[in-house]
Amino acid sequence: MNLYFLVEGKRTERKVYPAWLKHLLPELEQVQNYDEVNKNNYYLFSGEGYPSIIYDHLPNAVADINANGKYNYFVVCLDAEENTVSCIEQEIYDFLTAEKIQMGSTQLVVIIQNRCLETWFLGNRKIYSRQPQSQPLLDYTRYYDISVNCPELMGKYDKFNTHAQFHEAYLKELFRAKNISYSKKNPGDVLKLHYLEQLLTRIENKNHHLPSFQHFINFCNTIRPKLSI
């Protein structure tokens, strides 16, 4: 079982996915070059942004996969940002069709982070301050209480240009209230098992929350039995 991950971000995703895969699928071992995979390996490459991840790096990744011939899954991970999940998915499939890109027996899996990775991170109820006192966290909580409502459905607070900007700012304020820090360069606690476990608890208790995160977890659950074959 070998996987090729093409992720959008050049900082956060390159740290979060390897850390979480160690927790979720410890049998998988990361390799540094795409042609080094053998058994139960994965290679991860950053497309460093949209739309280049689709129009430049996706066909290059498929070329790597076809040249190697050992990959079972091609996993493409990117943010929805201001689009819908279905819109981004359709854009990928339309591009593959238009360019007549074929991957043989390798299965394509598209993971759309709705709205971004920070949206998923907001699913940890342990980081939520029950009675926030400081600004702007108090305003953010009054606008949308992520401890009760699904983070993926949260809108955009007035002062921000995009949903992703607001979701990241909200996360940073929650961390600050706990005297810890978060940045895209240094994700900190989100890499740890206890943090991931809280996200898993969230979707177990609220199965309609974080649907795009659930898609990633369901994929991991699907391939786990195959790693022992």
Rank of each mutant, 00 (worst) to 15 (best):
P59L: 06
F5L: 14
N38L: 09
L96W: 04
R176E: 09
I54C: 11
N207E: 12
N124Q: 05
G155P: 05
T162W: 01
I127E: 05
R115M: 07
N218I: 06
V37N: 06
G123D: 08
I112W: 04
L227P: 08
Y50V: 08
L122A: 08
L108Q: 03
G9W: 07
L153R: 06
S181Q: 10
T84S: 15
K70E: 11
E27A: 14
E204G: 02
K39N: 11
V110Y: 05
L122M: 09
P136L: 09
L174T: 03
K156V: 15
V62C: 14
Y143F: 15
N2P: 07
N60I: 03
D158F: 05
F166Y: 09
D145L: 07
Y157I: 03
E81I: 07
L24Y: 00
K184Q: 11
I54Q: 12
K100F: 04
L24E: 00
I54N: 13
D79Y: 05
T162R: 10
Y17T: 05
V190Q: 03
N66A: 06
G104W: 02
L44G: 05
K156N: 12
S228I: 09
I92S: 01
H215G: 02
G9E: 05
E118H: 05
I203R: 00
Q32E: 14
N179C: 03
R224W: 02
L210E: 11
L24P: 01
E99W: 00
K226T: 11
L58A: 01
R202N: 13
F216H: 04
E89G: 12
L44Q: 14
P225Y: 04
L138M: 07
E99D: 11
N205A: 13
S212P: 10
C116W: 02
C77V: 15
G123L: 06
H209S: 09
N114F: 10
W20S: 03
E48N: 15
Y182A: 11
Q107K: 15
N66T: 13
Y182D: 07
E29C: 06
N218H: 13
D79A: 07
N60D: 13
A169R: 06
C87S: 15
E118M: 03
E82C: 07
D145N: 15
G104L: 05
M1N: 05
Y55M: 04
I111F: 03
K70D: 10
T141C: 08
N66C: 11
E91I: 03
H209E: 13
